[in-house]
């Protein structure tokens, strides 16, 4: 049983990642696409933090009497990645706002139609 459940976290992460991926490739709405990327990105965060977990460990803040800590390195990488991720998401959303102003729509299909008419 534990053989099967040992990868549970990773499998759910993959399901979440694919959910985000599906939204990005199947939905023509640009805001929805950005949200899909956001979900994809968060699933990668969960993946890294899951790898960092050590059975029976605790948060990596050194304290007397505790010997097992989770791995601090993925925490550092993801901590900064979250802030950078928001910065890039904001940039993406700003592009969506400008596209709406230029085309009057945020639907990818409609944008293609307008591009072909030009």
């Amino acid at each position: 049983m534990s053989e099967l459940l040992g990868h549970y976290n990773y499998w759910i992460v993959i399901v979440l990642m694919m959910t985000g991926f599906y939204i990005v490739i199947a939905r023509p709405n640009l805001i929805k696409k950005v949200i899909g990327l956001f979900i994809f990105q968060t699933s990668v965060f969960i993946f890294f933090i899951s790898i960092a977990k050590v059975e029976g460990g605790t948060a990596p803040i050194i304290e007397e009497g505790i010997s097992v800590y989770s791995n601090p390195l993925p925490h550092v990488l993801i901590l900064t990645a979250i802030v950078v991720g928001l910065a890039t998401t904001a940039l993406g959303l700003a592009l969506v706002v400008r596209i709406r102003e230029a085309y009057g729509t945020i639907n990818e299909d409609d944008i293609h139609v307008q591009d072909e008419e030009r």
Binding site: F45, I49, A52, S70, P74, I82, G85, L86
Partner: peptide
Amino acid sequence: FVVLDAVDVALTEAAI
């Protein structure tokens, strides 16, 4: 993230 011991990351994710 709190459950997985990444308290610093959890603070960031909650706020962001």
